[in-house]
Design a protein around this nucleic acid. Structure first.
Lengths: 393, 393
DNA sequence: ATTTGTTTGTCTACCTGTTAAACTAACTCC
DNA sequence: GGAGTTAGTTTAACAGGTAGACAAACAAAT
């Protein structure tokens, strides 16, 4: 039921405290770690020596003296192991190898024509196998596999519902674990994006971040009190199906007036076709629109601005609900950032409650197309470090 | 920055673990506490004897034998101290004394004609003083004062904005602390209501609870991952100003189509007057409507059902956003529960995403008018126990 | 009534990990 | 080159938890 505390737990906690301090302040001396953590110098010394044995920390050369003996600088060993992260999109699979710092070492993309699971799954397996062969030799090797999907994912890694892929009840985590015998992490794409931006992107010091992933549909990842919020069983963040017009268009979800009917890539495309700005069934419609906007086509630019207002209405709702510190907009629609962003910003400035009292920042995703995959890497890496903590005294 | 762990922390944590176990399972034997917590029997014995010294736990007589020596039953001593909790409403102040179990011992209400702070504040002070005199003698006496207000409250207890009271930037916590020299807790009324229902009400085992307080306006308190969510600076939960009709009525908040324009007590009253169901400026309009509905006035019942649909639209949004385990509807509008609730439930059942996969419960507030005040009591009591933990070894 | 086995709660010996403080090492500055 | 500083290690003391022995108190079987 509840956790009991004893000296072993104390050691675990202090050891990870030392490790995270080294990670966040690398390079750093033992003395400085002691200062920052508040731990005794002796304690730090002994914990560090264990971490060095585990190859998670290494000594680099001596640092600069500040008037006394020169410190021995400690580094987090980002090469002690490597994660493999996959982003399963509509129409593509992106796979990367990252080191323990989340740095991308290697990457590979495959374009897909279908969304059929039985076709895609073997392709993904091959992609992973290919990446694994490229992983450098290291103490821990491949520490795990993370997969970001545009889907509602249960706590135990089952894909409950992926409307844009037309998947339902796929036990992806179990399947992958059986094949690779490695820890596997499955997450919703927007959640992973939010996490990636928090760890490696533009909201690293924000404890309340809303990440709106606006692509074909809309998904929202929420970092609340510094933690990713899942809700009871993974359905949280279905903000794309928030009603913003109570008697509006009918949505396939059964509701009317859903946000993503007005503010997604699909919405832009539909309206553009309806207005005769582009032809249906002909190449990449969204790319065409960007092209046209670049050519200063006023009708297209106006369309983008209209969409931006709808995006802003939904984001304003988010802001009034969550009072976040940081709102990040990611995924494909932000390729039209140039025409969308100013409208969004000014609308929110005008309409969000108590805006002047907030220090709200609104940004586009700093990691760009890598938000999601970086988030998956972060999950995998943190899962690995947690395991280390548990097993290794 | 970060917390270091040592044996003192271990002891603190284990001691509160023992205490909360006793609280939650009272009456309980030492042996059983050891079993539940996983702590060693000896450890439990020594911690319990300290808690007995501090009068937080007491021994009652022997319990029933289960085939061996009869256990000595332990009780949480709810009478070691008392909290004073205040609910500052529009038109009234409610004040109560509770014991450490959150049980109401004494209560007092004052009706108000004004919302002017300089008038209300002295009245509140007197109410508190009156209650203090009625507090029974005990080891710790009055442990603190909690005040629930229909307002945005900052982290340090400043009332930033109370639209229905017309207050702005009132440093209520500081003022009260200066007068009474006791710990003071200020919270938004909906937040406190959510907390109260979680601690003593209908969602005691739910980690994801949405509490919608629907009165003159709408406020929402959110228990996310078992914790009350505040957002960056207390503005979270302004769901009353969520847009549900993008070109709808204009709201004083500057937005259009805000939820509370369609789904609050004020909305009911406005529409009732507009439709000539009741006269303006004459008695308690809402009470009249309930009266009429009781007399089976079809027009009024239809109005209630309409409002219920609007409430349900907003709640469905909440559910899609948070994927909660439990949705609780509280405050005055639920006095029309009889006519409102069935519509709300059926709408949500039909429209919330993945409803069938959820074990969502929808309820009205079990604590009724005491949701908020019970929540304030809980804050005060928990603050006190936290203090004990810190100071007392 | 006696015996047997069980449960409760205390006590003791032991172990682990943190801390304080002494100590060594290495460097800067005058 | 000595004084002062800073870095890192070592040592003894200490706190608190655990395991396991133990006594007390009881139920059920004989």
């Amino acid at each position: 039921m509840s956790r009991t505390w004893n000296q072993y737990v104390v050691k675990q906690e202090n050891k990870t405290l030392v490790l995270t301090t080294v990670m966040n302040h690398t390079p750093i001396s033992r003395a400085n770690v002691a200062k920052i953590t508040g731990l005794n110098k002796g304690t730090v010394s002994s914990l560090v020596s264990e971490l060095i044995d585990e190859k998670l920390v290494e000594e680099s050369g001596p640092g600069k003296s500040s008037g006394g003996r020169r410190p021995v600088m400690l580094l987090f060993n980002g090469n002690a192991g490597y994660s493999i992260s996959i982003e399963l999109g509509v129409g593509y699979i992106l796979g990367v190898i990252t080191d323990l710092n989340g740095q991308i070492i290697e990457q590979d993309t495959i374009q897909l024509q279908t969304t059929h699971f039985n076709t895609i799954f073997p392709i993904m397996i091959n992609l992973i196998k290919g990446l694994m062969e490229q992983v450098p030799k290291s103490r821990y090797g491949v520490i795990g596999i993370g997969v970001g999907v545009p889907a509602v994912v249960s706590r135990d890694g089952e894909i409950l519902l992926a409307p844009n892929l037309n998947w339902k009840n796929v036990e992806l985590k179990t399947k992958l674990e059986n094949i690779f015998n490695l820890p596997v992490y499955i997450e919703n794409e927007a959640n992973a994006g939010a996490y990636g931006e928090m760890r490696y992107g533009s909201s690293q010091n924000s404890h309340h971040t809303i990440f709106a992933s606006i692509g074909i549909g809309i998904g929202v990842g929420m970092i609340l009190d510094g933690k990713l919020y899942h809700g009871l069983n993974g359905f949280a963040g279905e903000l794309g199906h928030m009603t913003i017009e109570k008697d509006g268009k009918t949505c396939r979800c059964g509701n009317r007036g859903c946000w993503e009917l007005y503010a997604s890539e699909q919405a832009v495309i539909d309206m553009a076709i309806k207005r005769g700005l582009i032809a249906a069934d002909q190449g990449e419609p969204f790319e065409q629109l960007i092209q046209l906007a670049n050519e200063e086509n006023q009708a297209v630019i106006e369309l983008f601005e209209e969409i931006a207002t709808y995006i802003a209405i939904g984001l304003t709702n988010c802001i009034n609900i969550f009072n976040p510190e940081h709102v990040i907009i990611g995924n494909r629609l932000m390729r039209a950032k140039e025409w969308i962003y100013p409208t969004i910003e000014s609308y929110i400035l005008e309409h969000a409650i108590g805006f002047h009292q907030n220090k709200l920042k609104i940004d586009s995703a700093k990691l760009g197309v890598y938000s999601t995959i970086s988030g998956m890497a972060a999950f995998t890496i943190e899962g690995f470090l947690l395991d280390q903590k548990r097993n290794h005294a």
